[in-house]
């Protein structure tokens, strides 16, 4: 595939996913990997966030987010040690529930629906994207695919698809009272998706 066609496909996916996410009340931001850290800090300051929980996944550490955010004065919840006991795990969860935002990345997102795959390969991730009231999700442009069928396929490219997983499509919501939409029942009520381009 030539570089321009590839870029066109990416552009149309970005447009599709942006529309899909906006109908779900998700804020969508585009940036580059080098600009992401600064933009994120700006963004958190504006929202008056002080406590942050980060996933221990590869993308987050490659982007050096933990160090950056600490340096900028945020309270960063350290990820849970794998050998921690239940009491420690309980304390960690309570701390997560008190921070302003949880930040994770996704290995693949379906443009049509705006659904992101979250793997429990890093066991912390499920709680980081679930307990805080605000979820910021980082997606690399090249990890956008057309639809759910392609998402399932891409998942299979890097694993046997036997992990614990969850597909996340927008913020937690309910319509149980007179079918009126309310965001943030048990999961986060606010979600931001940052789509970034990796510069070679």
């Amino acid at each position: 595939m030539s570089k321009t066609t590839k870029e066109q496909i990416n552009l149309s996916r970005i447009e599709t996913v942006t529309n899909a996410l906006q109908t779900l009340d998700v804020e969508v931001i585009r940036t580059t990997d080098s600009g992401l850290g600064v933009l994120l800090i700006d963004f958190l300051v504006q929202a008056e966030a002080t406590g942050v929980a980060l996933s221990s996944d590869q993308v987050i550490s490659d982007l050096k987010l933990p160090a950056m955010l600490k340096a900028a004065g945020f309270e960063v919840i350290p990820s849970l040690n794998q050998s921690a006991g239940p009491i420690e795990a309980g304390r960690w969860k309570t701390a997560l529930a008190k921070v302003d935002v949880g930040i994770t990345s996704t290995p693949v997102m379906a443009a049509e629906t705006g659904s992101a795959l979250m793997l429990a390969k890093y066991p912390d991730d499920r709680a980081v994207s679930l307990l805080p009231p605000w979820h910021i999700l980082l997606v690399a442009e090249e990890n956008l695919v057309d639809d759910i069928a392609s998402l399932m396929k891409k998942w299979g490219e890097s694993s046997d698809r036997r992990e614990n997983a969850v597909l996340v499509t927008g913020p937690s919501r309910t319509a149980d009272i007179e079918k009126e939409l309310v965001l943030g029942v048990h999961g986060p009520g606010k979600m931001t998706v940052m789509i970034y381009r990796s510069n070679p």
Binding site: G114, E163, A165, V166, V168, G187
Partner: peptide, 19 residues
Amino acid sequence: QRATVYLNLLSGPSPGPTG
């Protein structure tokens, strides 16, 4: 909805401290 907010895929116990 095009998709529900969560599709939870449980494949078994988790070895980590969170269960």
